[in-house]
Design a binder for these strands. Sequence first.
DNA 1: TGTTAGCACTCGAATTAAATGAGTGCTAAT
DNA 2: ATTAGCACTCATTTAATTCGAGTGCTAACA
Lengths: 344, 344
Amino acid sequence: MEIDARKMKILQAIVRNYLETGEPVGSRTISKYTDLNLSSATIRNEMADLEELGYILQPHTSAGRIPSDKGYRLYVDTMMAEKEQEVKEMKELLLEKEEKMDAMLKRVAKVLANDTNYAAMISAPAVQGNKVKFIQLSRVDKHQLIAVIMVEGNIIKNNIIHVEDYLDDETILKLNIMLNSSLGGLSISEINLAMIARLKQQAGVHEDIISGVIDAVADAIKGEDEELEIYTSGAKNIFRYPELADNQKASEIIDTFEEKQMLSSLVKETLTNSDSHGIQVYIGEESPVSAIRDCSVVTATYELGEGMRGTIGIIGPKRMDYEKVVDSLKGLMHQLDNLYDKKE
Amino acid sequence: MEIDARKMKILQAIVRNYLETGEPVGSRTISKYTDLNLSSATIRNEMADLEELGYILQPHTSAGRIPSDKGYRLYVDTMMAEKEQEVKEMKELLLEKEEKMDAMLKRVAKVLANDTNYAAMISAPAVQGNKVKFIQLSRVDKHQLIAVIMVEGNIIKNNIIHVEDYLDDETILKLNIMLNSSLGGLSISEINLAMIARLKQQAGVHEDIISGVIDAVADAIKGEDEELEIYTSGAKNIFRYPELADNQKASEIIDTFEEKQMLSSLVKETLTNSDSHGIQVYIGEESPVSAIRDCSVVTATYELGEGMRGTIGIIGPKRMDYEKVVDSLKGLMHQLDNLYDKKE
DNA sequence: TGTTAGCACTCGAATTAAATGAGTGCTAAT
DNA sequence: ATTAGCACTCATTTAATTCGAGTGCTAACA
């Protein structure tokens, strides 16, 4: 058996209705709801087919039907197809302003959560592929150096370095010049171990002392991209949806939001296969994070200038309003765009 | 009517029992529970008195009694009195190590939440009163300077400064010397407006250009102490306690934990009146944060070296195990102490 | 052949009723 | 002052009942 146009329409009607109410939807409801005028009996027949095909399911006999993950998936896919071209116009976000990145991201997450009444997450742009703009090593006191590294997009990293032996001003100056001329302008992916080894050698007599310093600098540049920074907001919104609000589930979801690292696999996956113009949908078990297996996630990839990419995500019940969420994500992009224009 | 020794003992028994079970406790239970052998009838009489005095209350007629906020308060106060001298030995925590402050704080919160099965919060030490260790202004490109400020305790702040006109190396060097000699070693509270004004004047011909720079530096030092940094962990633990786990309440509490700023009034209050050797207890409505009015909070003040003080807090149900929590807080202090010793 | 009306049937949810029992307040005896 | 005893209260539990939305199936119809 194949799914035809009419079955598709009925499926859509079921999904839409279920999104609204959260209740299983029966044949009578649909027979009134849709434009194709069919009696409840016909709908019932079609529904039986849809169930056999695995698009909908009955929580129990003599209840209405609810969409299965597969049903949601079909719905989302067709909807996305309709929206695809609009999505394309998602502007790039350039934020080379002084505004502190983290404050901005937090705000974005908050706005998004408020707009949608779902939970929102946003990952800081991974510095992967970003260029080193500025390195400076300074002496704080006899045994402490501080390394300040700034990459494009105005992200700053600091690293405190402990040294055994006192380094005089001249050595530090020399090191600074060496670091900047060697590493400046390079993207982080271009800084590999071979280069670091060469740098150590260049350091000459001080090699053994300085080795630690360079290690630390490399660490400051590379470091932490293991640990994606993730901001979240609106966790409380899950309580709006009874199907997520029972203790067991809520506890897991809340925990995921607090231990944000648990979301990193989601971010990574999104960044890896960001086709479909950056918007992706994970329904239920499709999500790589098992704690939110009862939720759906809609993610968008954003890009700040030179290949700095991050992820914005909306996490809500499976019956989330996918259309609205996609629109919200787009809307947000525009808003950020405007914000950028104003500051320019 | 006055509360006498026996009433006190009965109250204690009621509180203890309620902490364990979370259920209203009846007269029969107490008559078996306590060492003073009294019949349930006598207990009932005493309970009627305690209720009249406002220390306990009945959720409904013919239910057992539960402690009122006032009852908890009395219980906690007497318990604290017994523990007071032990608390005194709470060691200072010095963390002049390379470990990044925020990572450390997050870890501490996590440990604490796991240990206690309550939710934990910790505020980053307020830089108030801390000494500036190191200031450096560097040019990143034609119109961008970066200010790096490090204060004792290895807290680093960065600030990007936009300048209209190009500043040559010499000017920057001059500024650096000026900033360090003027501000270095001063505590933040010692840096006042008058001093900033004088600095601006000293800047001489560049005054108008440089004014912005100094403002930004001052801002980087002062800034953000408005916005206390707060870390939390273990929010999910509230689901362990049915009296907090209903949607309405859980939603509010979770929100408070996510929007950590809502906890700042709590931190501020704790820091202000940190008598009682740094440990304070807020029961129910006593808390300055209304969203957690159904919880109790136990806070401890910690001090990192020169007057850098922060707050650690445990947030749980009113029937939290106050004794254990106080012990945990002390235990944590010791653990941190050891950690420090090892790294020394 | 596809659509529809009709009907018996199912089964979760809501409603009601009854039973339970922990706990109280009061009184009278110790 | 303490306690045993007893009648009373009332949330909670359990069971029985009703209710109704929704189904599947069959037979009639276009």
